[in-house]
């Protein structure tokens, strides 16, 4: 028997992850207009409720908002919400949609021929998505703050960053679950669109989770990005952590960090095996 030339190692698996992220970055660099739109989207998304607030609330808008949310700075509140939403929606579009993208380009079977656990590839896509969305969300937050005259560097900045970073990992797990759903249903657009609105509601992009009916509030608490966005708002604007102290909310996010990726990876692997048992990966 001829010896195989290349054996997988942890280093080569990390190489797969980096190659996957690099490949996406190269691809998006060839669509330059898309990168410009990345910056505009969160600002436009936040501008609508901000301007609506000014139009309908008038001078009392800030006071009303303070009574419901714990901060009068509704402009920064919306900007943080829409920037966090950018991170979440990119995770769905890039990581969850990854399977569908590969199916549509016809490369899914080609990568399934390779001796690589697909989770390394998806992790590469997630890394790309996180880089792109973090840059885009941060830039949009800064530009939006300049446009609407708010101070972007108020409050506990480091704690806010910690909440964003800790929120990214469970988000990856939720994206795996979403990817498995797309792999099973073989339809993505309607699902992503629906999810986007669901996510906007659940994570409280424009309003606090506290105003939800009880059942919806429980659902929102089961969704990791809700904790991420509330953590950032509490750190920067002082709206109040769910469990009073920042480290208690952070502990919940860390629990999600352990559970969500494992659950997502397990479901993804099961769906993948089920598909290989029947029609195969290339069929869509």
């Amino acid at each position: 028997m001829v010896e195989l030339l290349y054996q997988p190692s942890l280093r080569s698996k990390l190489g797969v992850l980096l190659a996957s992220a690099r490949m996406r970055l190269i691809t998006i660099s060839r669509y330059r207009g898309q990168l410009a739109l990345d910056l505009v989207m969160p600002i436009v998304f936040a501008a609508m409720p901000i301007l609506l607030g000014r139009a309908t609330g008038g001078a009392a808008a800030a006071d009303n908002f303070l009574r419901n949310t714990g901060t009068a700075n509704y402009v920064a509140y919306m900007l943080i919400g829409s920037s966090a939403f950018t991170i979440v929606t990119y995770a769905f579009w890039h990581t969850g949609y990854w399977v569908r993208w590969e199916q549509e380009t016809g490369t899914l079977e080609a990568i399934y021929l390779a001796p690589t656990n697909k989770l390394w590839l998806v992790a590469g896509v997630a890394l790309y998505s996180m880089l792109r969305s973090l840059i885009s969300a941060t830039a949009a937050y800064l530009i939006g703050s300049a446009i609407f005259h708010v101070n972007p560097f108020q409050g506990e900045l480091l704690i806010a960053v910690a909440f964003v970073v800790s929120g990214l990992v469970p988000l990856l797990g939720v994206s795996f679950l979403f990817g498995a759903l797309i792999l099973k249903l073989k339809q993505a657009n309607a699902l992503v669109n629906l999810m986007q609105w669901g996510v906007t509601l659940l994570m409280g992009v424009f309003f606090p989770v506290a105003v939800f009916p009880p059942m919806a509030r429980v659902l929102a608490w089961l969704f990791p990005p809700t904790w991420m966005v509330n953590g950032v708002r509490s750190a920067l604007l002082g709206v109040g952590f769910f469990f009073g102290r920042w480290y208690r909310d952070m502990a919940v996010l860390w629990a999600f960090m352990l559970i969500a990726p494992l659950l997502g990876a397990w479901v993804f692997a099961r769906v993948e095996r089920n598909i290989r048992r029947n029609a195969g990966m290339g069929e869509y």
Binding site: Y6, V16, L18, M23, I26, A110, L121
Partner: peptide
């Protein structure tokens, strides 16, 4: 959207 050489390098990574 990748060049020929970028395609081959990407698949080379997948084969460790």
């Amino acid at each position: 959207k990748l060049t020929g050489i970028e395609n081959l390098e990407f698949f080379a990574a997948l084969y460790h």
